[in-house]
């Protein structure tokens, strides 16, 4: 059954790609859920994570786990610093000014990387030998297994964190009503910092995974990846954590599907075409709650 095998193959490829998008999308959706802001700099944090992984990997002392962990930690700190410096002072003003500020941050980060590491695409050092497993007629690489595995584990961890920890409960409370949560003794600043740390960490991890998977790192890689991840978050229903995961995987799968049906020139448009189609029929995304018209 070649068609079935091909389909399985594309499913695996799409899942791996979608896992990367989903990790970035989670950051978008968490920050949006809590402070209602689109943090456009996430794409650049993802890029930063990829470079952090690259630098760590080049030191020869690290294996894949420490590279992942290191990059995650670096981007977590970066995320918190960005929030403190560029977003916190304007938290009370209009969302558009926060958006422009975020865009300023992303311009800064990508041009910073151009300055430090040059504008060219860099290969990623081999952290571990890639192997190909053949199952029937379709193949799965170790890289794909790692990506799907790591992405899955992180999402599970996030779910457990948000559902069962005190901090997670505080985050959910803030998403409902920040002022009320604050009156109940929740430290809003800390919740926001933790949210940024987690979101950025996820994006950083995704960066390293993408670097390994595509064997390419580039200062402007964050832009399109970030936009697609944002599309994924909205597609799933922004503010919803399972929505971001579903959205990421849907976008990944569509993109791979587009390549399979020989429309790879259009691959960057697929994510957005699907997004617009879904929004037209479900204006608040797949998992998004229908905004109630309050009068």
């Amino acid at each position: 059954m070649p068609i079935l095998n091909n389909l399985m193959q594309q499913l695996v490829n799409g899942l791996a790609l979608g896992g990367i998008y989903a990790l970035i999308a989670l950051g978008y959706t968490m920050v949006y859920g809590i402070i209602g802001m689109i943090n456009f700099a996430y794409g650049e944090i993802f890029m930063f994570g990829a470079y952090a992984g690259l630098v760590l990997a080049l030191t020869n002392y690290v294996n894949v786990y420490t590279a992942l962990l290191g990059a995650t930690l670096i981007t977590m700190i970066l995320g918190v610093v960005i929030e403190r410096v560029a977003y916190k002072p304007i938290r009370r003003s209009s969302r558009l000014s926060a958006l422009i500020s975020a865009i300023g941050v992303s311009i800064f980060l990508s041009s910073f990387m151009v300055r430090v590491k040059g504008p060219n695409t860099r290969g990623f050092p081999t952290l571990f030998e890639n192997r190909i497993f053949e199952i029937g007629n379709f193949q799965i690489t170790i890289y794909q297994i790692v990506i799907i595995g790591v992405a899955g584990l992180m999402m599970l961890g996030l779910h457990l964190f948000v559902t069962y920890t005190k901090m997670g409960r505080a985050m959910r409370a803030c998403a409902q009503d920040k002022d009320a949560a604050s009156l109940m003794g929740v430290n809003i600043d800390r919740v926001i910092s933790v949210t940024f740390a987690i979101g950025s960490g996820l994006a950083g991890t995704a960066g390293v995974l993408a670097g390994i998977y595509f064997n390419a790192v580039q200062p402007y890689m964050g832009l399109l990846a970030g936009l697609k991840a944002f599309a994924a978050a909205v597609l799933g229903g922004i503010g919803s954590i399972p929505g971001a995961m579903i959205g990421g995987i849907v976008i990944g799968l569509t993109e791979i599907l587009g390549i399979t049906v020989n429309l790879s020139e259009y691959k960057d448009a697929f994510a957005f075409a699907i997004l617009i189609l879904v929004l037209l029929f479900k204006p608040s995304g797949i998992m998004g709650r229908k905004a109630n018209k309050k009068v």
Binding site: S94, S97, S101, I107
Partner: peptide, 22 residues
Amino acid sequence: ANYRMMVYGVLLVIIMIFRPYG
């Protein structure tokens, strides 16, 4: 020169912090 876009990005952030409504 090479720092141009970095400064531009910082400028956007600073203006938004000090004049959030433009």
